[in-house]
Design a protein around this nucleic acid. Structure first.
Length: 774
DNA sequence: TCATTGGGCTTTTTT
DNA sequence: AGCCCAATGA
């Protein structure tokens, strides 16, 4: 038997050795599911299955790379090379490029990112002269996105009165028209958005039986990781491809489903056994990652959820230290506490910076942490947020490159035609747009044919500017036919005047932007050299753009630097760190104020908290503040309900427990690191015992009074509200609405309400902040 | 056509 | 507090 199989426990070995047939592996946090997936693939190959016939879909490209790397170590690099592994988006983007002509797309179609898509929608709303306060482009975008993820095409939309009515109810009766126009504009621009990569794959497999057959025969064995986070569109793709051979292995953990907001459907994993015949179910319940305290604390959290599969995660590891809970006065103070705690832990336990992670609910929280780490000279790296490729200067360069590959790419064109400024303004663009629409051509085609279109009113000087632009782009295009991506990008950066423009600016931000462009060019250079080593690639711009479009921050090459990691909890899924700080555990922040209205939303927040805690190997730290800067103002905060939900015996409060909610801040010191340290030492020897209370000095009281704004009672949930069917109510977010129905008793009492702004919602009255109007 | 400014909005999470 | 957009004036 293969040696690596001895690295598995019995529970892990069983699914690893089952090659044929449908199977599901429910894998608790830290139970070694990646190991199972990796070894299963290696085992399949050792049994003579061709790598060419295996498709493994992962949640991030990084996960795919790491797995492939590990498999290569076991079965050899040349064998592993033929494996298809990657995210849904990247795998099917490749297939779509290959089959593009069948769907009427060019094979060099552009992939629009969220920014591009939203910009298209903004333009449509403007062109249709709709009220932008009613038709908010972000809302419209996410609505369209959810249609696509549910496979509701424009046609299906107009055939579905319920959907249209729901949109009309939320004051957006022209939603369908926007959707239609958006799809048309993307198509004309030869562009697919993220959701199209899945939607069009479905279309491809549905409309062309021979194509479906081809890929069914090719991908005889399919594995899907993080199955709990697949959406309907992804579910259908997997279902279609696995239909013939039924060799489908899905792995996931319902307790870690945290992407419902973008259409992930937890029912995919809950109902898997009904979807295929003779499903074998395996459970991985032993956690190897974390201490007993962490595992059990996490269990006590997830226990509060109603919707979950039966599963008990346990560990044979030591109990370890308890989870530390601390309250700080402000977010700045929180940052300082975390930084000094990291510093102490590093010293006491001889740990590296890379052994620490700071996790938060929203990206905006990173700033306070950064400031504190910087002051302490602790190196850190922020993941996520505005990713490198989304920065303005980077997108500018990339847009030029995009335009060379696909001249129909209107978003790219709009971005670069007058940047750096070359005197081509809005008026000219409007005229060009109108002409382009009239002839069904792209703007770039119109530009190329101005001689034949004399009716477009353009002054002589503007004409010269346009011609210059077209000639410049054409010059680049010719260059791109012979040179590699780096040479082209370098030329673009210089010849367009992009870099010059930034140099002229001279501000520190301008200089930082030039550095970013340089970093991009270096990145392209690396990419080109890497690709040239591969037989089936040549380092072209098209290849680079494909890579970039679907890259995430986690995918970026690790410089092997030893840094504290800062990221949202969503990004941290699948990762692990010896020490984890989870900050901002406050009501309205975590759980997010946007996700407290229904039980299912709240349960997703709770799963998110579960994910956060289970990232920790040795110890977890939870912090919350009494007041925090939000929207530029200092606002009062209240400890998160999630803290209370953890069984107390796993917690070590650094503040008196009976005082841990509200009350003026007296015991926690807020003025400097020295005292912070002494406090840390104080609690160490007698864990669990709160430090003695100190009387505040006059000086401290004065500062406190200054810092705390006049106490405002936080808007409290109207849990005592007595609702009846037919009542008119008002909701903070959804606006006015009418109660359609009420059911459930006590804590579970919920009302079905038809809102003007949100359509029909079921709200748990315990949490919903409703005002009774009549 | 371009640059500046003020107002409004933002903070959920991401492929 | 910061970002993005529209309005305004040169």
């Amino acid at each position: 038997m293969e040696a690596y199989l001895s690295e598995l426990n019995d529970a892990q070995r069983a699914p690893t050795l089952q090659i044929e047939g449908p199977m599901i592996v429910i894998a608790g946090a830290g139970s070694g599911k990646t190991r199972v997936l990796t070894y299963r693939i290696a085992y399949m190959m050792s049994k003579g299955i061709d790598a060419f016939n295996i498709l493994a879909l992962t949640f991030t490209n990084k996960a795919a790379r790491e797995m492939q790397h590990r498999i290569a170590q076991i079965v050899g690099r040349s064998e592993a090379k033929n494996l298809w592994m990657g995210t849904f988006h990247s795998v099917f983007a490749k297939i779509l490029r290959f089959e593009a002509d069948k769907l009427g797309y060019p094979s060099n179609f552009t992939i629009y990112d969220t920014q591009d898509s939203q910009s298209v929608i903004r333009a449509i709303i403007k062109d249709m002269q709709l009220d932008k306060d009613v038709y908010k482009y972000k809302q419209v975008y996410s609505r369209i996105s959810s249609y696509k993820n549910s496979l509701i095409t424009v046609k299906a939309y107009f055939n579905n009165p319920e959907l249209m009515e729901a949109d009309a109810m939320s004051k957006k009766p022209r939603m369908g028209e926007i959707y239609q126009e958006y799809v048309q504009r993307c198509f004309k621009a030869g562009a697919m958005d993220f959701d199209d990569l899945l939607l069009k794959t479905n279309e491809l497999l549905n409309r062309f039986p021979e194509v479906l057959q081809k890929y069914q025969n090719r991908f005889r064995y399919i594995l899907v990781d993080e199955y709990q986070d697949t959406n309907h569109s992804q579910y259908l793709i997997v279902k279609a491809l696995s239909d013939k051979f039924q060799n489908i292995c899905v792995v996931g953990d319902d307790a870690q489903s945290i992407y419902a907001f973008r259409g992930a459907n937890i029912n995919n994993i809950l109902n898997f056994q009904k979807d295929y015949e003779g499903v074998e179910m395996y459970r991985l319940e032993q956690n190897y990652r974390s201490t007993g305290n962490i595992v059990n604390a996490a269990n006590s959290i997830i226990d509060k959820n109603q919707t979950k599969l039966d599963k008990v995660v346990w560990t044979a590891n030591d109990d370890g230290p308890k989870i530390v809970v601390n309250r700080l006065l402000t977010d700045g103070e929180e940052g300082r506490y975390v930084a000094s705690s990291i510093f102490e832990n590093k010293m006491q336990n001889q740990m590296a910076n890379g052994d620490f992670a700071i996790l938060y609910r929203t990206n905006a929280q990173s700033r306070a942490m950064e400031d504190a780490l910087r002051k302490r000279d602790i190196p850190y790296r922020i993941y996520g947020g505005l990713s490198f490729y989304q920065r303005k200067e980077i997108k500018d360069v990339l847009s030029y490159l995009r335009l060379l590959i696909n001249p129909k790419d209107e978003e790219a064109l709009k971005r670069v035609i007058n940047y750096p400024a070359r005197g081509i303004g809005a008026t000219t663009m409007d005229r060009l747009s109108i002409a382009a629409n009239k002839y069904g051509k792209s703007i770039f085609e119109v530009l190329e044919n101005l001689d034949h279109l004399p009716e477009i009113k353009i002054t002589k000087s503007t004409r010269t500017k346009l011609d210059n632009f077209v000639n410049m782009i054409k010059h680049f295009t010719i260059l791109a036919q012979n040179a590699d991506a780096f040479t082209v990008a370098d030329t673009v950066a210089k010849k367009t005047g992009l870099v010059q423009e930034l140099k002229k600016d001279g501000t520190p931000e301008g200089i930082a932007r030039i550095e970013n462009i340089e970093e991009l060019l270096n990145g392209i250079k690396d990419f080109v050299e890497e690709q040239k080593e591969l037989a089936d690639a040549n380092g072209s711009i098209a290849e680079f753009l494909e890579d970039v479009a679907l890259a995430t921050d986690l995918d970026k090459e690790t410089e092997d630097e030893d840094r504290v990691a800062l990221m949202t909890i969503h990004l941290a899924k699948g990762l692990e760190f010896p020490y984890v700080y989870i900050v901002g555990l406050e009501e309205d922040l975590f759980p997010s104020g946007m996700s407290m209205n229904t039980r299912s939303e709240l349960e997703e927040e709770r799963r998110l908290f579960y994910v956060a805690v289970t990232r920790a190997e040795k110890q977890a730290f939870l912090t919350y503040t009494q007041s925090r800067y939000r929207w530029g103002k200092l606002v009062d905060a209240e400890p998160s309900r999630f803290i209370e939900e953890i069984d107390e015996k796993f917690l070590d409060y650094m503040i008196p427990q009976d005082d841990y909610k509200y009350k003026p801040l007296i015991n926690t010191d807020i003025f400097g690191d020295e005292v912070d340290k002494s406090k840390l030492r104080q609690t160490k020897p007698k864990a669990g015992t709160p430090p003695p209370a100190h009387k505040p000095t006059e000086e401290q009281l004065r500062k406190l009074r200054k810092l705390r704004p006049a106490a405002t009672e936080p808007a409290k949930a109207t849990n005592a509200i007595q609702l009846e069917v037919g009542n008119e109510v008002e909701h903070m977010r959804f606006g006015k609405g009418k109660v359609l129905g009420i059911d459930g008793v006590g804590q579970d009492r919920k009302a079905e309400i038809n809102f003007e702004n949100g359509g029909i919602k079921k709200l748990l009255l315990r949490f919903a902040k409703l005002k009774l109007l009549s």
